[in-house]
Write a protein that binds this DNA or RNA. Structure first.
Length: 372
RNA sequence: GGGGUCGUGGUGUAGCCUGGUCCAACACGCAUGCCUGUCACGCAUGAGAUCGCGGGUUCAAAUCCCGUCGACCCCG
């Protein structure tokens, strides 16, 4: 993997860049749709390409459990298995330590889980996570970290951070393949000194990119932005910065302005399936009764397939009727919205008008949007 | 013409025999919100029935009695 900065904004920390991988280039700032279990739910790879997706995210934990990372390796790796020719980044499975909290046991050595699929016992260590991710063969792989819930005590956040740092070092050391970029993950909860330590200690281990983890776990917007303001400035300019699990359209704008390059989030795809649609005016909850006879497009400013061809009334009907097409059309739109937002942000960086973009982005939402 | 069963929110039901704890419960539906390194799930909150109608018994009736209307069934 290679990363170059094409343009650095002067008024903000935003930057335009390009990641080159064996599976194509990714222009940053970029949003990665989430394809946890080897598929971006409801989308075909061809549709993702049409939307302009250059990299997707897969998950080591899920693919290890099913169909099995060895199976994927035997079938030629994840790209070939899911027929996705562009770039892939795999998550280490660390987040599942958090999301499957009930079933976990964390020790210095690693984490034991009970499978959420069949209850069988499994064990993932930093070494195991790297092995899985090398079997999957993504272009970018993540260090195995521990993501803690919010709120967390200082002592817990510190212990967890220190363990995550030791795990990061083990990940670095056990890496075999040289054609995959390994990113480290900065934890530290919402304590400024811990985040600073997490970043500085991780820098010394020499990863090819740096991620901020443990964000958007229940903290306030201000707290998250404070972490970004603390950590992003001390990261090396020449390495990609990745905000894991982030976030809302607003989060993306704020992240880009602070110098983040990569984002992934289930929000556009999951919300598509649960009827919450993103538009230039804010969120539209498509099941609401006010759309029952609404013949207009979901977002008049959007030129995706869904907005060009279907009415709000039809989208509402499809959703309430539980039609599969609802998930598909909604996902096409939400992903289109996210990808267009990122494309517009990149354009704004290129043209040196990031601040203006931000103002317009927020002003469109004032007063007009669906009351939250 | 005779006999029987049933009528409870939008839908389907529970409660009725053994009247009070039912200004009525459950499911689905409906309405509003939530969802941030994903079980196409899930969660929260809310609206909605004078218990077909009328009368009676009783301190008290969705519940017992009488009448009546309606739906369905059986016999003629």
């Amino acid at each position: 993997m290679k990363f170059i900065i094409l343009r650095q904004d002067t008024a903000t920390s935003a930057r335009l860049g390009r990641i080159s991988t064996a599976h194509g280039e990714v222009t940053t700032p970029a949003f990665l749709p989430v394809g946890t279990a080897g598929s971006v739910k409801a989308m075909t790879p061809a549709e993702l390409v049409d939307l302009g997706v250059e990299m997707i995210l897969g998950n080591a934990y899920h693919l290890y459990l099913r169909p099995g990372s060895k199976v994927v390796a035997e079938l030629g790796g994840l790209h070939r298995f899911i027929s996705w020719k562009r770039a892939i980044l795999t998550d280490s499975g660390g987040y599942q330590v958090l999301s499957h909290a009930k079933l976990r046991k964390v020790t210095e050595e690693g984490v034991s889980f009970q499978s959420h699929l069949d209850g069988s016992l499994h064990y993932i260590s930093p070494e195991k996570s790297i092995e899985i991710q090398e079997d999957l063969g993504a272009d970018i792989i993540m260090a195995f970290d521990e993501c803690i819930q919010y709120p967390a005590s200082y002592d817990h956040a510190r212990d967890s951070l220190e363990r995550t740092l030791r795990w990061a070092e083990r990940c670095r050391r056990c890496q075999r393949r040289t054609d995959q970029a390994l990113f480290g993950i900065i934890q530290g909860g919402f304590f400024r000194d811990l985040r600073e330590r997490g970043a500085k200690d991780l820098l010394r281990l020499g990863f090819e990119g740096f991620a901020l983890g443990g964000l958007c776990v229940g903290e306030t917007k201000e707290m998250m932005l404070e972490v970004l303001d603390t950590v992003l400035p001390i990261l090396p300019v020449e390495k990609p910065r990745y905000l894991m699990g982030v976030g809302t359209p607003e989060d993306l704008v704020e992240g880009v302005i602070r110098g983040a390059d990569l984002f992934d989030c289930v929000m556009p795809t999951r919300h598509a399936r649960t009827g919450c649609l993103f538009t230039s005016f804010g969120r539209v909850i498509i099941k609401n009764a006010q759309y029952v006879r609404d013949e207009g497009p979901l977002d008049p400013n959007c030129s995706c397939y869904t907005c060009l061809n279907f009415s709000r009334a039809y989208l509402r009907y499809l959703f309430l009727a539980g039609e599969i097409l609802s998930a598909r059309l909604n996902t096409i739109h939400n992903l289109s919205y996210y990808l267009t937002l990122m494309r517009d942000l990149r354009q704004a960086i290129m043209e040196g008008r990031v601040v203006e973009f931000r103002e317009r982005f927020y002003s469109l939402r004032e007063g007009v949007c669906n009351p939250q």
